[in-house]
Each structure stands twice: as structure tokens, then as C-alpha cells.
């Protein structure tokens, strides 16, 4: 999985714009209303690259709240829920794949 920051913007299937929140690093998603949310379900989903570019440009303009926005793949479940589209994004949503030592 090449770091998404280095990928060209080609969109195959549904995507969202994601980043880390500036103050605490939390994983956030760009909403259709033009704000950041920690809930992937509330993310604006694009299926065409023009729309994805538009969302990315809007998200990137807000450099005070989030860091390094990029386009990430998602999957849509049969009931249209938004789910992370690969292992990396899965880990960003649910944390490391083993139980943490200090827990």
C-alpha cells in the first residue's frame, strides 16, 4: 500500500476525503457540509474523480483544522453504510490489529 499521499488522483469506486485532526491527530473525514467529522459514516462520498478533486480542494483549503487530507477508498455496504476500503483505512478506523499492551 503506497502511502496515499503519493498516489495520483484516479478514482475507481467510492472514495472519501480523510485527514488527521490538527490538535490531537484523530482520524477525521470531510463532510458534504464542508466540515470535519470523526464518523466515517458522515463522510461525503464521491464516485467520480471530478467530485473527489473538488472535495479534496475544499478540504485542503482548511489547513487549520486538519493535516494532509487525501483521498481514501471506501466500500458501501448493501444498506449504503460507508466502510473503510482497505486494510490501512480499516486500521485508521479501528486501531491496531492486536490488543494494546497498556489496556
Amino acid at each position: 500500500m503506497t502511502s496515499p499521499l503519493q498516489q495520483k488522483l484516479k478514482v475507481h469506486g467510492p472514495v472519501v476525503i480523510t485527514a488527521n485532526r490538527l490538535g490531537d491527530g484523530a482520524v477525521v473525514y470531510w463532510t458534504a457540509a464542508g466540515a470535519w467529522t470523526t464518523d466515517i459514516a458522515a463522510a461525503a462520498v464521491a464516485t467520480a474523480s471530478a467530485r473527489a478533486k473538488q472535495l479534496l480542494a475544499a478540504a485542503t483549503a482548511d489547513f487549520v483544522h486538519a493535516v494532509d487530507p487525501y483521498v481514501a477508498p471506501v466500500e458501501l455496504s448493501p444498506d449504503r453504510r460507508v466502510l473503510p476500503g482497505n486494510l490501512r483505512e480499516q486500521i485508521r478506523v479501528s486501531g491496531p490489529t492486536f490488543s494494546l499492551p497498556g489496556a
Binding site: 488527521n20 490531537d24 491527530g25 484523530a26 482520524v27
Partner: peptide, 9 residues
């Protein structure tokens, strides 16, 4: 020494 990783700094 501050990096940004997948889910936090």
C-alpha cells in the same frame, strides 16, 4: 520528534 502516524501523533 513529533510524527503524525495513522491514528495519532
Amino acid at each position: 520528534g513529533v510524527y503524525l502516524q495513522l491514528h495519532a501523533y
